[in-house]
Simulated assay, not measured.
Amino acid sequence: MTAITPSAPRTAKSPPSAPVPRPDRKFYAHSRAFGRFGIRWFDPQIMPREHWHGHIEFNWLTEGQMDYLVDERPVTVPSGRLIMFWAGIPHQTVSLDRGPSAGARQCNIYLSLDAFLYMPNLGTLTETMMGGGVIMLPEDAVDTPLLERWYGDYRSGNAERTDILKSEIASMLRRTAMVGWDTLLDPWIEPDAKGTRTGTPLRYVVAMVRHILENLSEPLTSKDVAEVVGLHPNYALNLFTSVMGIAMQKFVIRMRLIRARSLLFANSMSIANVAYESGFSSQSQFYAHFRSAYGMTPREMQKSLAMSGYVPGSEKMY
């Protein structure tokens, strides 16, 4: 769960050493609300302080184990199992066992929050992540050779290999949603945080995020969202911005655009219906935001998809 610069592998069986990811880590620091996709291998280390960022994060440890605090809750992560959690919740590695050979290596996958939220057919897996749960995927979900191959695909710079990689991760999550997972930490954030004794800033904001996502197609005002957690609208807006690193209005627009883009990808729905289902109050508003975000109109994107022979389910998600 750390952000350590990958170092060169020490043995022939270790993950590939070249090319090394860029030191600026733009996918990692994109924003606290939305990160960019990335994979890295590195030597696991204890973190000096907790941090959080805009991803669904996956951790893999080749041997040994690590102890974490996730929003101050302890959890022990074993080796040989892929761990998954929402990295928007503060987390910190506090102790480390490097295994019998003292040569433990860690692989992290960073999936952007918005890409994850619009993956289809995940059901309670999405609820578990947004509720603060920490889970282990099935034992046969991945292994070290597969993660090494994914890393090679990610670092290849080949767009098609990257698309295949993301599709494989999405399929892995769909299978996990069907067959189940092992829970390390139960979800603890309820959709409605109003009046709870555990109404910390983080819990309030997560409850607001969940309300927004569940009601994107409906009119959303700061007053409506604040009422979900029983806060004054101005305080709720400031709290949301301070925790998520993005204004609530911009967050809502971003998520509506992602939904609209997914609808354009998924079927031949009319532009008017896409705008309506995505929560935009008018087509003119929809067109303005869409062009600003994607550099083309919704209709132009539909045409480009049709001309490219696009197959639903193959789209790239941030």
Rank of each mutant, 00 (worst) to 15 (best):
T62F: 08
N59T: 15
I56K: 03
A29T: 12
A12W: 07
F58E: 12
Y28G: 04
P15M: 09
R36K: 06
H51N: 08
I46W: 04
H30P: 01
H51R: 02
G103I: 00
N108E: 15
L111T: 08
A8K: 10
Q106K: 06
P16R: 12
I56G: 03
S14E: 15
Y110H: 04
R10T: 13
T11N: 08
D24T: 10
F27R: 01
C107H: 06
P23S: 08
Q65S: 15
P9K: 02
L69D: 13
Y68H: 13
C107L: 03
P44Q: 05
P74H: 09
G38C: 04
G80H: 06
Y68D: 14
F85Y: 11
A102R: 11
Q106T: 05
V75A: 14
T93A: 15
V20K: 07
H30M: 05
I4E: 14
R40P: 01
Q65L: 04
P21W: 05
E50I: 00
G103F: 03
G103E: 15
R10F: 09
V20R: 12
R73S: 12
L61K: 04
R22T: 14
E57G: 03
R49C: 09
W60Y: 14
R73M: 12
H53Q: 08
S112D: 13
P48F: 04
F27G: 09
T11G: 08
H30Q: 13
R25S: 07
E50W: 11
R36T: 05
L113N: 05
E50L: 00
E72R: 09
D43I: 05
T11M: 05
D43L: 05
F116C: 00
S95R: 11
Q92Y: 08
S7E: 15
L111P: 00
M84C: 14
L111C: 02
W86V: 05
R25Q: 08
L61F: 04
W41D: 14
V94Q: 10
Y28S: 01
P16G: 13
S31V: 02
S14L: 03
L113R: 06
A102L: 06
I89N: 06
Q106C: 13
Y110L: 00
T93C: 15
P21Y: 06
P19H: 11
V70K: 02
S14G: 15
T5P: 01
A18P: 00
P44R: 01
M84I: 04
R49Y: 13
T11D: 15
Y28I: 03
M84K: 01
W52F: 14
F85Q: 10
F27W: 11
T76D: 14
Q92N: 09
H30G: 00
R98Q: 13
G80M: 01
